[in-house]
Design a protein around this nucleic acid. Sequence first.
DNA 1: AACCAAGGCAACCGCTCTATC
DNA 2: CGATAGAGCGGTTGCCTTGGT
Length: 378
Amino acid sequence: MGRPPCCEKTGVKKGPWTPEEDIILVSYIQEHGPGNWRNIPTNTGLLRCSKSCRLRWTNYLRPGIKRGNFTEHEEKMIIHLQALLGNRWAAIASYLPQRTDNDIKNYWNTHLKKKLNNNKKVEGRDDNHDHQEGTSASSSSSQSKISKGQWERRLQTDIHTAKQALCDALSLDATPNNTNNNNPPPNDQEQPPSSVQTSTTYASSAENIAKLLQNWMKNSPKSTSSSSSKITQMSSLNNNLSIGAVSSSSPSEGTVNVTPGQGLDSLFSFNSSNNSDVSQSVSVDEGGNFSTPENHNNNNNNAGIFQVESKPNLPDFKPENGNFQEESKQNMETQQVPLTMLEKWLLDDANAQAEQEDQLMGIGMGMGMTLAETTDLF
DNA sequence: AACCAAGGCAACCGCTCTATC
DNA sequence: CGATAGAGCGGTTGCCTTGGT
């Protein structure tokens, strides 16, 4: 007897999320924090099941997610970690905090798997990637089906193989960062290294939305050709849309109130209550470029420009918002340095990238550690 | 220009784990 | 201690885009 579905099958929307739905979800989560997924469809009116909301958030809307091309460095990390951990995408993703497990999984399945297979063929040792998958990866998937003893024995073999592969790989692509021996190797692959967490300066989810908007605008060159074009959607959102603004007037009820006309502006305004005199704007032009007031004058005549302004009557971020406390701080800091919200995000990306390199070195050092220590990871 | 196949990716499904009662 | 619900995870699916003919 299986479990009942997480939600009623009827009346639940499936398929791609619309910008409107994204905004509603982000608005709600910004106000209440992630969690209580089951309440979200009810409280927001979204015709999505709770699971879908959670997935959308974790895989797409969550702050700090980097999308787009994987760097060579990330690629190597994934390859190494996959060799080490198997198809444990969540564990792998913990070492790449800007990437989601889904993203990594997709990238592995569509790019790296193929790439590795080709490499193996070229190297003439077909023995192999499939074997590797058949051990560490499939053992991961069948972990629950075999006895713990079997699992551990197999794992040890896998670790040995993976370690060998990783040592080979690391010896090939040693970088000056290798000198950073101070990074302790992670001692639990289920938890990201603390340096990641402590220094995680997640951009706000609204920034993520901004980025999404940027992409939507970029990817929607035919802004006038289709009623379903994203830029049209966003335009309507920003102008006379029926959704978008979140009212904080009744947060206890946890509802997303609709404020026609307020549109997206609100979503990009943070903590304005204690910065009510701050009037900052960030614009995204049709080419996806951001501009600030300093250079905004050159752009503000552009049709279709997306303008982000802070307003004083916006929802506060409260400490009780859980995970968003950090984010709120971030937002506050950002507000104190006007106009750099998106720039800061880019910097965060760069910093995170550097941290990841350090982490890889940590892993590299981890590979330098004993097999027993490696085994301790598990 | 039209059609088709392959690839990429977002989202869904189902299982497992964990916390709570 | 078992039942239940919430959340997390990995595998898979299906749609959309892109490239080739």
